[in-house]
Write a protein that binds this DNA or RNA. Sequence first.
DNA 1: CCAATTCGGTTTCATTATGCAACCCTATTT
DNA 2: AAATAGGGTTGCATAATGAAACCGAATTGG
Lengths: 157, 157
Amino acid sequence: MARKRFDDSSCSVARALNEVGDWWSLLIVLQAMYGTRRYVDFQQELGIAKNILCDRLARLVDNEVLTKVNVGEHGCRYEYRLTDKGRDLFPVVIALRQWGDKWNPAPDRPPLDLRDRATGRPIGPMNVSDADGKPLTVRDVFLPVSDEDQADERNSG
Amino acid sequence: MARKRFDDSSCSVARALNEVGDWWSLLIVLQAMYGTRRYVDFQQELGIAKNILCDRLARLVDNEVLTKVNVGEHGCRYEYRLTDKGRDLFPVVIALRQWGDKWNPAPDRPPLDLRDRATGRPIGPMNVSDADGKPLTVRDVFLPVSDEDQADERNSG
DNA sequence: CCAATTCGGTTTCATTATGCAACCCTATTT
DNA sequence: AAATAGGGTTGCATAATGAAACCGAATTGG
């Protein structure tokens, strides 16, 4: 049977995973953030099969995470560039990177340290935080019960 | 051929995706953050096939994202609980949720608003930020060239 | 200006992964 | 004691993945 899709799930995490939740898409986006724009460069730097790369690039373009731009002077030569939507995945990628560095560090290599171009200082850790910037864990948050949910509860039990 | 794995990739994003980068794993973790602990509850709330759920739970336990606890009094009854490593995926999940809410909002439903239990106020947006907390975009950061890389460059050209 | 190579794919085929349904054994409830 | 719930496993059909071969339009080298 077909793989399950989450296009119209009520959960925005599920809808997000529907677009970038496979093994390759986020790595392609990451590579694009490093500056890669050409098909052949994605292919070589990621070591991905060409047919899969075509499929993923097309899907990312469909979902407006990337744009495909013809940069050929006489004929066709393409670049894949991040859109605003794609660039907005930066916090997701960095959160994943920091999680990976913390819990699965490379055995003998120091983690990449991204730095602020303006100050030269390393970027800070990603945190979920309250309105004042105080860090919150999963135990510090709750989901307020909406009017709709209350109505649902009355109706069903 | 077998799906490509990234266990020993030098990229921590790739290593992270190796553990939670498939269609279901992060949704299972998210559900666990909502409080779900039992096999049947995961199965019904996610609508996932039972064999796939078994596989993913086992993998998450292997990777120490979840623990499997026998909570049966006379026999066997299990709970799957988040570990510290699993709870540390909170920023990843929230970053994904906020991206999904921003770029693929549900047509007729307001996004879930998680709130700080202490103050009742909504959580803030996830940002990559510098040491002082100032938000940074992907264009504001760079990757300093390490000594090793410089040596590599001299060796290869 | 002709040959070789690069770019950006598509096609074919073998191997895996996913999803559904049926089944199974052990607890718990009625 | 019988029915049901919990936590799976097995078998099968379909879909996704990966490697390699192939292809036509650009581009580069000589």
